[in-house]
Amino acid sequence: MTQPFLSVRNMSKHFGGSAFSPGPTVKALQDISFDIPRGQVVGLVGESGSGKTTIGRSVLRLVEPTSGEVLIDGTDITKLGASDLRRQRRRMQYIFQDPFASLSPRMTIGQILTEGLDIQGIGTKAERRARAEKALTQVELPADAFERYPHEFSGGQRQRIGIARALTLEPEFIVADEPVSALDVSIQAQVINLLRDLQIRLGLTMLFISHDLAVVEYICDTVIVLYLGRIMEIAPAAELYANPQHPYTRALLSAIPSLDPLVKQQRQVLQGDIPSPANPPSGCVFRTRCPVALPACAEAPPPLRETLPGRKTACIRDDLPA
């Protein structure tokens, strides 16, 4: 069996609850495990507050996991020292949600694109410029953007600059955190198509974070469904959209609008709000909003178990859709 490019094992992330951060412990992530095969795109979906961004930042150690392992080609990066981690960072990059906030207004595009190369000590000044200009070409921006500033570009162009910044180090793995949610609808499709084309052409492995289920269906090979810091379901994208198993997944997918007027949708509206991660429900964290919850759901968190070949679901019920 081929070793996955990225493996996350029993990762948890807690905030607060210490002398330096008084207050209740917020269990942002609990016992997260998944794999990303090399060259594939895995999507993270779930409501706001489900832990999607925390996973993205934890797997790159932009925030430190509280426990668990993050393996890149079999190497646990949570145990690497600063110098070894810096070398690993050449292989993995982050695309931020807000393209304007992530670009320094005081730096030219050239300075922004070559900053990572400077830090890593890659190439001469001329070689760094050449790599930056190549990245601009890859995201379909003109080379003369090199001398300009972020405020001179539109939102869609600034996100292309953010993508170019990630590409200058020629990474193998990218975390794309809601990369089109801050853009106009008319621009979103262009950026998504660009990302998909780059991923295929460069053979990138990608963790794609989004609340837009239609976008996730289009770009992702596999989908992970999160709720309140726990995984509810993992499945190949085509199978998950055709036959969602977990009650939470079914509710999420029922909210996708259909453009076919002949299709009558059965919307499953979840009651109440997502609970606080500082005080999650006992047992299954989804049980307080689940339309098919059983008394036993309050007893212990359900294990993520294989319910169909290649699919895993965290639910104790035996009558899940086959």
Rank of each mutant, 00 (worst) to 15 (best):
L29P: 11
L29M: 13
L29A: 12
Q30K: 14
D31A: 01
D31F: 08
D31H: 13
D31G: 00
D31N: 15
D31R: 03
I32H: 12
I32D: 10
I32K: 09
I32S: 10
I32G: 08
S33F: 12
S33R: 09
S33T: 15
S33H: 11
S33D: 14
D35E: 14
D35M: 03
I36T: 07
P37I: 11
P37F: 11
R38E: 15
R38M: 11
Q40D: 03
Q40F: 01
V41I: 15
V41Q: 11
V42Y: 15
V42D: 12
V42S: 12
V45R: 12
V45G: 08
G46R: 01
G46K: 01
G46F: 02
E47F: 01
E47H: 04
E47S: 01
E47Q: 09
E47W: 02
S48A: 00
S48C: 02
S48H: 04
G49T: 06
S50A: 12
S50V: 05
S50P: 01
G51I: 01
G51M: 07
K52D: 10
K52Q: 10
T53P: 03
T53R: 01
T54Q: 08
G56L: 06
R57A: 05
R57I: 01
S58Q: 04
S58L: 04
V59Y: 13
V59P: 05
V59N: 07
L60Y: 09
L60M: 14
L60A: 09
R61C: 04
R61I: 02
R61Q: 11
L62K: 00
V63Y: 03
V63H: 08
V63I: 15
V63M: 08
E64Y: 03
E64F: 01
P65Q: 06
T66M: 07
T66N: 03
S67M: 03
S67C: 13
G68K: 06
E69L: 04
E69W: 05
E69C: 03
L71F: 06
L71D: 05
L71N: 03
I72M: 15
I72D: 08
D73E: 15
D73L: 04
G74A: 06
T75G: 00
T75R: 14
D76R: 02
D76N: 14
D76H: 07
I77Y: 10
T78S: 04
K79A: 15
L80S: 02
L80R: 00
L80Q: 05
G81I: 06
G81N: 13
G81T: 05
G81D: 14
A82W: 00
A82Y: 06
A82C: 00
S83T: 11
S83W: 00
S83V: 07
D84L: 08
D84Y: 02
D84K: 14
L85A: 03
L85R: 04
R86V: 03
R86A: 12
R86Y: 09
R86I: 03
R86F: 06
R87Y: 02
R87G: 09
R87N: 13
Q88A: 10
R90D: 01
R90V: 06
R91F: 11
R91N: 15
M92W: 08
Y94K: 00
Y94N: 01
Y94V: 06
Q97P: 09
D98P: 02
P99S: 07
P99W: 05
F100C: 00
F100W: 13
F100Q: 12
F100H: 11
A101Y: 12
A101N: 10
A101T: 11
A101G: 15
S102M: 10
S102E: 07
S102H: 10
L103A: 09
L103D: 05
L103N: 08
